[in-house]
């Protein structure tokens, strides 16, 4: 067994420390050490995308990063999207447009879309579909996810800046 390493990072705007074995994935660290279980593991091979979180603003597979690699990083997870009870425009759009069924892949899709829209708020429909093809959903057939992201993009552009989840 290799020794645990102590790291500090920012999660959803809050400074946190964790002491983890190097082999602990970022996903497992978030879930088991920091008790943020909204990030889900669907494959641990980087394919399904259920574990997608934002690291320094970029959507990444948290199963393909080790927790120790997040030392000093700013991580955002699904728990940080809503402002209290006020849903993020993406969450609101997923809700209104039935963009989820079992909900297991949903946090990954939300964070993927959040990161992609922050990089490019003006994605075309084609670009949205291309980005969303990064993650797998087995329930919805995707059309309501695509629709929700498209509508959320409009809201995010028009409305007040997304809520205070940015650090």
């Amino acid at each position: 067994m290799s020794d645990k390493i102590k790291i500090t990072l920012t999660v959803n705007g809050t400074a946190m420390t964790a002491e983890v074995e190097p082999r602990r994935s970022l996903a497992d660290m978030l879930r088991d050490d920091l008790r943020l279980t909204g990030t889900h593991l669907g494959c641990e091979h980087g394919v399904c995308g259920a574990c997608t979180v934002l690291v320094d603003g970029k959507p990444v597979r948290s199963c393909l990063m080790f927790g120790v690699q997040a030392n000093g990083a700013s991580v955002r997870t699904v728990e940080g999207l809503a402002d209290g009870d006020r849903l993020h425009p993406l969450q609101q759009a997923f809700w209104e447009n039935h963009g989820l069924q079992c909900g297991f892949c949903t946090p990954g899709f939300l964070m993927l879309a959040a990161g992609a829209l922050e990089e490019n708020p003006d994605m075309t429909d084609e670009e949205i579909r291309d980005v969303l093809s990064s993650n797998l959903c087995r329930c919805t057939g995707y059309q309501n996810i695509v629709k929700a992201v498209r509508l959320a993009a409009e809201v995010m552009k028009a409305g007040p800046a997304p809520q205070a989840t940015r650090s």
């Binding site: 995308g49 997608t52 959507p59 990444v60 597979r61 393909l64 990063m65 291309d130 990064s134 993650n135």
Partner: peptide
């Protein structure tokens, strides 16, 4: 680059 895996993979 658009053919290399997917968007989140290309970030890392």
């Amino acid at each position: 680059v658009r053919n290399i895996a997917h968007y989140p993979i290309r970030q890392r």
